[in-house]
């Protein structure tokens, strides 16, 4: 109980107060201490990667055993061990097989996923932008002006570009700052709750 509950809470309290204080201390000793803390967190975090990969392997092996998504599971395991092996034993320089697979397989796959966004944005905008009421109509008109204004069409239509920039820099920025202020206050409140030990779900409920 002490190790799993009390000690973590004491640590969070002490480190929380120190972390908060460090923000107000510019002294190099404080900076050095902060750097040491960051290095510790990187080192501790590295151990979590092993746990994470173990979970990944366990899940796919279980899938294969149960005959569920066998093909995908095999692909995932082969990719995981294959790339790790290549990187470890055959190097990762420009001309290595690792780099070649990265550039010719990983890059297009990643770009494909990202490009799906264009399709989803189109489909979502088509379904969502309906002038149902005054607010929705305003949203619709604003969206059209911004889309056109910041595109190449805005290059020739200066008024459109100016209106779009005004929308982005004034009303849009104002609402964003409003949300950000709320977020900032929420972050402080949550941190206080964690430091005081009122909020404990982060250590498993």
């Amino acid at each position: 109980m002490f190790l799993s509950r009390t000690l973590p809470m004491i640590l969070v309290f002490v480190m929380g107060i120190i972390g908060f204080s460090l923000y107000f201390i510019p002294h190099p000793a404080a900076r050095q201490f902060e750097n040491t803390l960051s290095q510790w967190s990187i080192a501790i975090g590295s151990f979590a990667i092993f746990l994470a990969i173990t979970s990944l392997i366990r899940r796919y092996i279980n899938n294969i055993k149960r005959g569920k998504d066998v093909f995908y599971s095999i692909v995932a395991l082969v990719a995981l061990f294959g790339m790790a092996g290549l990187g470890l034993f055959a190097g990762i320089d420009e001309k290595s097989l690792f780099q070649k697979i990265f550039i010719n397989v990983n890059v297009p796959l990643d770009a494909t996923m990202f490009s799906l966004l264009a399709f989803y944005v189109t489909s979502a905008a088509y379904r969502a932008f309906r002038a149902r009421n005054v607010e929705a109509t305003l949203l619709l008109v604003t969206a059209v002006v911004v889309i056109l204004g910041i595109s190449t069409i805005g290059d020739t239509q200066v008024w459109l570009r100016k209106t779009a920039e005004w929308i982005m820099n004034v009303p849009n920025l104002a609402q964003k700052r409003g949300i950000l202020i709320g977020v900032g206050l929420g972050v402080i409140a949550t941190s206080v709750k964690i430091i005081l030990g009122i909020e404990r779900n982060w250590m498993g409920g």
Binding site: G45, A48, I49, L51, A52, S55, W202, M203, G204
Partner: peptide
């Protein structure tokens, strides 16, 4: 990875 261990 760290979030994974906590989520578990």
């Amino acid at each position: 990875p760290i979030v994974y261990t906590i989520a578990q």
